[in-house]
Design a protein around this nucleic acid. Structure first.
Length: 967
RNA sequence: GGGCCGGUAGCUCAGUUGGUUAGAGCGCACCCCUGAUAAGGGUGAGGUCGGAGGUUCAAAUCCUCCUCGGCCCA
């Protein structure tokens, strides 16, 4: 045998500079810098100008703290929306936003004061707000940098902030739409109040501590009882741990389903009404258990426990206040009211109601026409004109003062004197809210607040809205003519809007159906003022000219413009400043964010935006939040939702499905993930999971995502290598093998599915389709089969060209499909293939959705072929195992003739199965034997024509001869 | 405590209106290749479909309860 020639140099191996290893953390920042340099976002706007628009309106995250994994998911999904819609050819400008006002920022600034030992009360409000503003701006800048790193396609140079003066002015002018239409009223509701700081507190500002309180049992004499006459003259026993609320008692609540019993105290024959299950515990407090003589005590006791009645029998019952002799407020009847909240867990089953100081009390009393009396002042004392323990009483103290409530304190003493105090002891342990700041006890206290009514017919002239294209009829329906209530309009809109996933619709609907009136006011500093001029009776000025002056001032100077010193200026000549007070409350921040559509989509700050948005996209918690505040705001002012569709995502859990928390130490920091794996990996993760539900992230998951990434990357690398130097296209080749046509039909099929996935915002399907296609149809099938042709056919062989033409089509399709997901890698792939495009400021992200040639192929026939192929692989395996053969190329295969689809030759089958030969037999089984043919020294196929191992087959002989001749 | 939502192989996901032996990709194990090479190919093992009842000829799919987890409220 002669010396064998090494044919390696004659084989056309893939050639590319595209590295297998990505090194994303190092590479991505450079790609970002280049995008910045070529002004990619603006360039895209220019190129898409005039196209159909797609507006995704950004829900503003709070400008406080670093980006966390939830932000990352949210932003990646939004970016996928923007990019995939862009890819479809639309113009999808995206303005990122931030929520900047509100309590958490106030706290942070206060915290800085504490560290500097500064008293907040000493700081002028303007200065305080300036610091809040600076603080928010600081975090906006930090988060903006972090978000950019994710590779988002957004107008980062022009974000919206709720604290920009223009935004603040728009929020005020939106509020004024409510004001001018009369869709705002002053009411009240109990809030947490700190008498020490003389301010309202949010739930998050209180902490619960165990304390010991005075518990008292108080008798209210029943004066009327239509259903149980026996009760007239009896005493209803109430129990409370806040004696100071007795002076503002207005009613007594009972449980309609609770059983009550009338107990007759043997010594004075007085009758008491107590819930039956609580009788023993109550009598023990009242020390009425041991008064019976030891003998026969049980019998006497039983006799003393008289008639049992049902709570509902108490309807219409009226008692009188123990201090009724004081007259006035105290002389009014104290009705018994049915309360679902009454339980028999503790107390007496009869609950004294002080609507000023409890939520249940407030709601129940309100429903029965009993209004709060505002007896307790800001500092926690009863007001000067209050008849009991008010101004003239030297015993007056803050109501939460301990001695004030003590068994020997003024309340208990007076009740005792009135014969109403049945028991009092300073021994009740419970947990009670305290101010997080001062550590002092807080109280519930009714405070005047501003409300938007949900169920009052809206009486507006015309909705001030530019009717968007295609919605003329819808808008006309909702103008002033029908006088719907805000709730009705909102519910109608919920039915119209499209929800992804659909369950979001029910969730939002049930919340809007059940929600109370919208409380707009907050007793705070850092926010947009409720710019109202109020008369003493609670009515307010509705003068568009005044409002216009206020709005103009805020647009120029921000919220600081709302200042007492400007009162006369704003009111102008038509109104006497003495008639009005300026409201000092600020707006609920949900109102701010409910207005983002107004100052971002409308107006000319972002001319490429338009109202309404096509889509709002946030976490499912925003059904309670932004989805709803935006809906209500827009429904009240414009008669429709500011969006046509709502997409919601779930929450990101740790690897075990538990929620992440700093205290548990199971958080995943997206910034670290980007440092370690790269932004493309975290993007691929976000777009692989079912984001509509809660989903997980963890090391194992990220590792899996990394594996998927590598597969995609290597698919591109192979295509880049195989397409090295290729400049033709499909039209250059006259002869297209059916396999190529089949792959094109697979691609067309994939394309349709990808497109559908985009339209349904079904991104995990989108990425799964892409990955599966690369794995199954390309890498393991098409590329594997065509490896021989690519490597060994003549450089300009028409069939080789046909393969490369299809590869080229695949490349252009896949790089576009991948672009919205792997934004960096797709760019790297594109620039590797077309460096000249890069030099001219091009980018993969400027491209449109690919157009796939439609070919006619009998795919069913090919499906059968692939099933047969699987069977052949299976049959080859045992021979591999026992080392009869090493590769499939050494196998002569006999397949059942009946299983071969029509129209394939044996030679084609051998090519498709990558075996030495395929013949057909009558047997049902696939049989495999080792071929006796020799291995071609160049293409390594085993063929009959090869005379000895290492000699050339006919095809390779031709190719090598030509190459040799050329050199 | 209440309302709503969810639990399918180690991981990420498919499973139409209830209908054969519950699928895919990845990972894993084993094997091949060494001309996509920190790549590529093949085969295989993995699941009481969260649990228990029930409806039905038939249940991952419908009903009830339980459990675990989540969001929003209280």
């Amino acid at each position: 045998m002669s010396e064998q020639r090494d044919y390696r140099d004659t084989v056309f191996l893939p050639k590319t500079d595209f590295p297998m290893k990505a090194g994303l953390p190092q590479k991505e920042p450079g790609i970002l810098a280049r995008w910045q340099e070529i002004g990619l976002y603006d360039k895209l706007r220019e190129e898409r100008a005039g196209r159909e628009k797609f507006i995704l309106h950004d829900g503003p995250p709070y400008a406080n703290g670093d980006m966390h994994i939830g932000h990352a998911l949210n932003r990646i999904l939004k970016d996928m929306v923007v990019r995939s819609q862009t890819l479809l050819g639309k113009d999808a400008p995206f303005v990122p936003g931030w929520d900047c006002h509100g309590l958490p920022i106030e706290w942070k600034v206060e915290e800085q004061y504490r560290k500097a030992k500064r008293d907040k009360k000493e700081v002028p409000p303007k200065e305080f707000r300036a610091e809040c503003r600076a603080y928010a701006q600081g975090w906006v800048d930090v988060q903006r940098g972090q978000l950019k790193r994710l590779g988002l396609m957004a107008d980062f140079d022009h974000p919206y902030l709720t604290m920009q003066f223009e935004s603040e002015a728009t929020i005020v002018s939106e509020l004024m739409k409510f004001v001018e239409a009369g869709n705002l009223y002053r009411g009240s509701k109990p809030v947490m109040w700190s008498p020490v700081e003389e301010t309202a507190l949010a739930e998050a500002e209180v902490e619960y501590e165990d304390i010991v309180s005075t518990q008292i049992d108080v008798a209210f004499e029943i004066v009327e009882c239509p259903n149980v006459p026996e009760l007239v003259g009896a005493h209803a026993v109430i129990w409370t741990t806040t004696p100071w609320t007795i002076p503002v008692n207005q009613a007594i609540a009972y449980g309609p389903e609770v059983e009550y019993q009338i107990f007759t105290f043997p010594l004075d024959r007085r009758k008491y009404l107590i819930a039956r299950p609580l009788m023993d515990a109550c009598l023990e407090r009242l020390q009425m258990v041991n008064i019976f003589p030891s003998e026969g005590s049980a019998e006497a006791f039983r006799r003393a426990r008289g008639t049992v009645i049902k709570g509902s029998d108490l309807a219409g019952t009226v008692a009188r206040h123990p201090m009724h002799h004081l007259g006035g407020f105290y002389a009014a009847p104290r009705p018994f009211l049915p309360g679902d909240f009454v339980t028999t867990d503790s107390g007496t089953g009869l609950v004294h109601m002080a609507p000023d100081h409890g939520e249940d009390d407030f709601e129940l009393c309100k429903a029965n026409g009993l209004e709060p009396v505002f007896a307790v002042m800001d500092d926690g004392r009863y007001r000067d004109d209050w008849p009991w323990l008010g101004g003239n009483d030297e015993r007056r103290r803050s109501v939460i003062n301990k001695p004030f409530n003590a068994p020997e304190g003024p309340i208990c003493s007076d009740l005792r004197e009135a014969g109403a105090l049945l028991a009092a002891s300073d021994d009740y342990q419970h947990s009670y809210p305290h101010s997080w700041r001062s550590k002092a006890k807080v109280i519930f206290r009714c405070t005047p607040q501003w409300f938007v009514p949900m169920d009052r017919p809206l009486d507006v002239g015309d909705f001030d809205v530019a009717v968007p294209e295609g919605f003329g009829a819808a808008i006309a329906l909702f103008t002033s003519k029908d006088h719907s209530t805000l709730r009705e309009i909102a519910l109608r809109e919920i039915d119209r809007v499209e929800f992804f996933p659909p369950k979001g619709q029910n969730r939002l609907r049930s919340m809007v159906e059940g929600r109370p009136d919208w409380v707009l006011s907050r007793q705070r500093a850092w926010g947009v003022p409720i710019t109202l001029f109020v008369r003493p009776d609670g009515s307010y000025l509705q003068d568009p000219a005044v409002n216009a002056r206020v709005v103009a001032a805020i647009a120029k100077e921000g919220v600081d413009a709302w200042d007492e010193s400007r009162k006369a200026e704003f009111l102008g000549l038509d109104h006497d400043p003495a008639d009005y007070e300026m409201v000092t409350d600020i707006l609920d921040v949900w109102f701010d964010s409910g207005c983002t559509h107004a100052f971002t989509l409308e107006g000319d700050r972002w001319p490429d935006q338009r109202w309404p948005a096509d889509l709002y996209l946030e976490g499912s918690d925003q059904h309670r939040g932004w989805f709803q505040s935006s809906l209500l705001e827009s429904s009240a002012t414009r008669g429709r939702a500011p969006y046509d569709a709502v997409l919601t995502h779930g929450f990101t859990m740790d690897a075990r499905g538990k929620k992440m928390s700093k205290s548990l130490g199971n958080t995943i920091d997206p910034l670290k993930v980007m440092q370690e794996y790269g932004a493309d990996i975290i993007r691929l993760w976000a777009l692989s999971v079912d984001f509509t539900e809660d989903h997980r992230i963890g090391d194992e998951i990220l590792k899996g995502v990394g594996d998927q990434y590598r597969k995609l990357r290597n698919t591109f690398r192979y295509m880049l290598g195989a397409l090295d130097g290729y400049v033709g296209d499909l039209s250059d080749t006259t002869e297209i093998p059916e396999l190529e046509l089949y792959v094109l039909s697979l691609l067309a099929d994939l394309d349709a599915k990808m497109r559908q996935a985009v339209e349904e915002y079904d991104y995990n399907t989108y990425t799964r389709l892409l990955v599966d296609f690369c794995n199954e149809d390309l890498s393991a099938f098409f590329f594997d089969i065509r490896k021989d042709r690519l490597y060994c056919d003549g450089a300009d062989d028409p069939q080789r060209n046909a393969y490369r033409a299809v590869l080229d089509i695949l490349f252009h399709a896949l790089v576009r499909y991948a672009a919205p997901v792997l934004v960096f890698t797709a760019e790297e792939v594109w620039q590797t293939r077309y460096p000249e495009d890069g030099e001219q400021g091009g980018s993969v992200h400027l491209l449109d959705w690919p157009s796939i040639p439609q070919v006619g192929v009998d795919t069913e026939r090919w499906a059968q072929l692939r099933t047969l192929r699987d069977r052949v692989m299976e049959a080859i395996e045992p021979l591999r195992r026992d080392k009869t053969i090493r590769s499939g190329l050494e196998a002569d295969v006999v397949v059942p003739a009946a299983l071969v689809p029509d129209g394939f030759t044996d030679a084609q089958l051998a090519e498709l199965f990558i075996t030495a030969s395929v013949t057909r037999g009558d047997s049902d089984a696939v049989t495999v034997t080792r071929t006796t043919d020799h291995k071609c020294g160049r293409c390594w196929r085993l063929l009959p024509e090869v005379t000895e191992d290492g000699a050339l087959c006919a095809r390779c002989e031709d190719v090598v001869t030509q190459m040799d001749a050329a050199t």
